[in-house]
């Protein structure tokens, strides 16, 4: 059986080009790359739907206002850029359970979802504590 090649580019080349994108970003807009603040702003936007007064009074949401900013669009862009690259190279693959996970922990979607969700809660809490 012939497996379709899914090698992509050298990580050195793709990484170095990302460095060039970073330099241009810092030069043109003064913006460095980051993603985790976007999750704070988005959480605030969701909470605001239920209790706007409470969100407005919370110190952390005063520091990181619940609004769409440069970084929010940057994170959205990462999604779109990855989608474009994956679709145009034939490496887009709808997958609910990663290969190595399935080999070790089995094909259960629920199990993967539960661990991913809990891991994500913990990871973001730590990321914000360490300030990104």
């Amino acid at each position: 059986m012939k497996v379709k090649s899914d090698d992509g580019w050298s990580p050195y080349v793709a990484g170095a080009l990302s460095g060039v994108v970073l330099i241009l970003s810092v030069w043109i807009t003064g913006k460095f790359f980051g993603a985790s603040t976007t999750f704070v702003r988005s959480a605030g936007m969701v909470e605001r739907v239920f209790n706007a007064q409470r969100v407005a009074a919370m110190e952390y949401f005063v520091r990181e206002l619940p609004q769409i900013d440069w970084q929010w669009m940057f994170v959205l862009g990462i999604f779109l850029g990855s989608l474009i690259s994956a679709v145009t190279s034939g490496s887009f693959r709808v997958q609910a359970v990663p290969d190595t996970w399935e080999r070790r922990f089995g094909p259960s979607r629920a199990k993967r979802a539960a661990v991913a969700f809990i891991g994500a809660v913990v990871a973001m809490f730590g990321a914000r504590l360490a300030d990104g």
Binding site: D6, D7, G8, W9, S10, P11, V13, A14, G15, L17, S18, V21, F33, F74, G77, I78, F79, L80, G81, S82, L83, I84, S85, A86, S89, S91
Partner: peptide, 9 residues
């Protein structure tokens, strides 16, 4: 950046 992240796999 997302394009390059995907290319770098």
């Amino acid at each position: 950046f997302g394009f390059l992240l995907q290319k770098g796999r």
